[in-house]
């Protein structure tokens, strides 16, 4: 390592030390900030109980004649995710055009659009769900609206990036032939971005299925409600079957969506 350029420049050496000091103090600060004393003594037994619940799940819960079973819970969850994704796929389009640099005449305009999308993204869906429960009452509908609004943040950003990547050629050619703005958009822009839009929407659907499984924790529909009840009542075999249901459903959705996405693009 004699010819290492780092050694010949001492100021670089100092900088690495500074970085190391910053990182170490970050960890010291983090470890001192968290209270590790509050762990329950029975943590071990509960863990074993949950694992046992997953090994010997409550199979009867998969289908109950009177309702409120795993199957219906999962269907609700999927329905919430589907509708939420659908709503956001449409609502985010104007935001996407607003935020893309090549569709705006002024730079600040797309900056404002990007900031709004970033702000929406920072609002967690679960917080939105709590607010919608206050507005439209508890149930799946609050969950749908929460997912629909929250997903605008990410989908809008991805859509905007897809728009920024388009080839200007077709649009310019259309303009040269005297097409109006709407025609340019419809024939010059949309066909180029549609496959990516669909791919991103499917990707967001995968995420929304995961999110929809937890919305029930605060009462916004789906499988989360029975799960949190089972956790609170320490019904571990039921926790086990619900977790299995979630894992299987999410995996299947992921596999299908990945397959379709690969076909599209």
């Amino acid at each position: 390592m004699k010819n290492n350029p780092l050694i010949r420049r001492p100021w670089l050496h100092i900088r690495w030390w500074l970085v190391a000091v910053v990182i170490v103090s970050l960890y010291v600060w983090s470890f001192t900030g968290i209270e590790f004393s509050g762990i329950r003594e029975n943590a071990g037994t509960v863990t074993v109980a949950i694992l046992q619940g997953m090994i010997s799940p409550d199979w009867d819960y998969v289908y109950l004649a009177e309702g409120e079973d795993l199957l219906r819970g999962m269907i609700d969850t999927l329905a919430i995710a589907l509708l939420g994704t659908f709503i956001s796929a449409f609502l985010c389009i104007p935001f996407a055009f607003w935020a893309s640099t090549n569709m705006n005449r002024w730079k600040w305009s797309s900056g404002v659009g990007k900031f709004i999308l970033s702000f929406i993204r920072t609002f967690p869906e679960i917080v939105m769900a709590i607010m919608f429960i206050k507005a439209v009452g508890p149930g799946a509908y609050a969950g749908i609206l929460a997912l629909g609004l929250h997903s605008i943040g990410m989908l809008g950003k991805l859509y905007a990036e897809a728009i920024e990547k388009i080839d200007r050629g077709p649009a310019e050619a259309l303009l040269a032939c005297g097409a109006n703005r709407l025609q340019v958009l419809w024939y010059g822009v949309i066909p180029q971005v549609l496959p990516e839009f669909m791919s991103y929407t499917l990707y967001r659907f995968e995420i929304n299925v995961r999110s929809a499984t937890i919305l029930g924790i605060i009462g916004a529909g789906g499988i989360g409600t029975p799960l949190i009840f089972a956790l609170d009542s320490r019904n571990w075999s039921r926790v086990g079957i619900i977790l299995l249901g979630i894992i299987i459903t999410v995996s299947v959705v992921d596999i299908i969506s990945n397959y379709v996405r690969r076909k599209i693009v």
């Binding site: 509050g38 329950r40 509960v46 924790i217 989360g224 799960l227 894992i247 999410v250």
Partner: peptide, 19 residues
Amino acid sequence: TVPDLLFAAIFVAIFGLGA
């Protein structure tokens, strides 16, 4: 496949309330 909030709900059952 398991979302973070679900992990958190399970770990609260295991470790008790807290960070």
